[in-house]
Amino acid sequence: MLQENKNMNVLDLFEKQKMVKVCAPMVRYSKLQFRNLVKLYDCDLTFTPMILADSFCLSEKARRNELTTNLLDTPLITQFAANSVYEFVGAAHLSSPYCNGVDLNCGCPQKWAKELELGCAMLKKPELVYDIVRQCRNRISKPFTLELCGVSFLSVHARTSNQFTGEINKNILKLIKENCNIPIIANGGLTSLEDCVLLQTETNCDGFMVANGLLTNPMLFSGSTTTSVSCIQNWLNICYNSTLNLARYENELKDPKCVVEEKPYNLTFQCFHHHLVFMLEKVLPRKEKRIFNNLKSFSDVLEFIRDYFDIRPQLYEPMQFYKNVVLDLDFFDREEVYRNLKSLESFQETNEAILYDCEDDGKYFKNKISPVEKNSECDWSNLFLEND
């Protein structure tokens, strides 16, 4: 079933649907559990967070941490940051059995990415981008999709590399769409399904990618303007069940406890709590937000949710659980493409991968903790400048 799901051709989405709705790659947050959640609410295509290709090729730990999936996690695009053929093609080959396509990030404007000549720094090297795309396409068979530079479809963040916020350039989007014979996905500043519909009318783009808006409201693509209690319930269920392996699930069936341990399998507190913070931004009153946003443990979060909403995690029925269980991905012997593309001398010199600290809260989250404690308002709207 996994092979069948991952062999899906992403381009079929554009053939069948007038509008393809896409969850953007988001640093720290477009993890498996959140991808499963938005798929419940009419999201057609999801991306992993940006993964450093060199780390992915060189480190088994990075592969285990950065790419997790299950039977419901499709179609999925894995996004890599790379500035060499061997890193990107090697990472693409490693991930190809477990996703429906790869994306070369040429848009990240963060300072650290620019210093490593990644992200938007790649826009200054079109010849290198072309070579990466060509060699990846030549080595990885269809229907595997390479999302970049007109090969299959193109996502366009309609701002310049120096713009973090503000209005997107709709005229440029329209110009790109008029001059390309491939599907175009528009990204930037979209906060509702109505925004997507309006932008499609103005630009005729084929798909629409949302980041911040989905964090606040995972139901956005279904037309809902706020996060419902049932969505919060689904988040609890997805997270709780993702922490259970088969042995623990069978024990829970006999004696359901429906609690999340403080150091659970396959789930970080950051992922669990932060997503709830964003989902409840427009739901909780001011006083309760100040309390909830600063909770520090799974037990405290679950107690708050239980007391305020009268809901708690629920154990899935067996068929649903088996579809949601995190798969054990086998990367054995798939490093060969990476090693062959990179010279032996260079490979021996590069024995340490750059590991991105995905567990760090990030400067935007840290900057918001103090204002939440001191001020009467809880404004998280600027937290994800790096994503939207």
Rank of each mutant, 00 (worst) to 15 (best):
220 L>M: 07
254 K>N: 15
195 D>H: 05
270 Q>L: 15
221 F>W: 06
270 Q>K: 12
223 G>P: 01
226 T>A: 10
254 K>A: 15
269 F>Y: 15
209 M>L: 12
269 F>E: 12
233 Q>M: 05
208 F>T: 05
218 P>I: 08
240 Y>Q: 03
196 C>F: 00
223 G>I: 01
224 S>L: 04
205 C>I: 05
255 D>H: 13
216 T>S: 08
249 Y>Q: 09
255 D>Q: 14
244 L>D: 07
245 N>C: 12
203 T>Y: 08
244 L>A: 07
234 N>K: 10
194 E>Y: 02
195 D>V: 09
235 W>I: 05
239 C>D: 06
247 A>V: 15
244 L>G: 09
197 V>T: 12
194 E>Q: 12
244 L>R: 05
206 D>G: 06
238 I>R: 06
215 L>A: 08
240 Y>N: 02
224 S>F: 03
221 F>A: 00
230 S>Q: 12
248 R>A: 14
213 G>E: 07
271 C>K: 03
236 L>G: 02
269 F>G: 05
229 V>M: 13
220 L>F: 03
210 V>G: 00
229 V>Q: 14
242 S>K: 02
221 F>S: 00
259 V>E: 11
220 L>H: 02
205 C>L: 02
230 S>P: 03
217 N>P: 02
224 S>E: 14
269 F>T: 10
199 L>N: 04
218 P>Q: 10
212 N>E: 12
196 C>S: 10
263 K>L: 11
252 E>D: 09
204 N>T: 07
210 V>H: 00
222 S>Y: 03
193 L>C: 01
194 E>S: 08
252 E>F: 13
249 Y>I: 15
236 L>K: 08
264 P>Q: 09
203 T>S: 06
211 A>F: 01
208 F>N: 02
243 T>F: 06
261 E>T: 15
271 C>P: 00
258 C>W: 03
216 T>A: 08
202 E>M: 09
265 Y>E: 15
265 Y>Q: 13
204 N>S: 12
214 L>D: 02
238 I>Y: 04
253 L>C: 15
266 N>H: 13
263 K>W: 09
210 V>T: 08
231 C>R: 03
239 C>A: 12
197 V>L: 11
236 L>P: 00
262 E>L: 11
202 E>Q: 13
199 L>S: 03
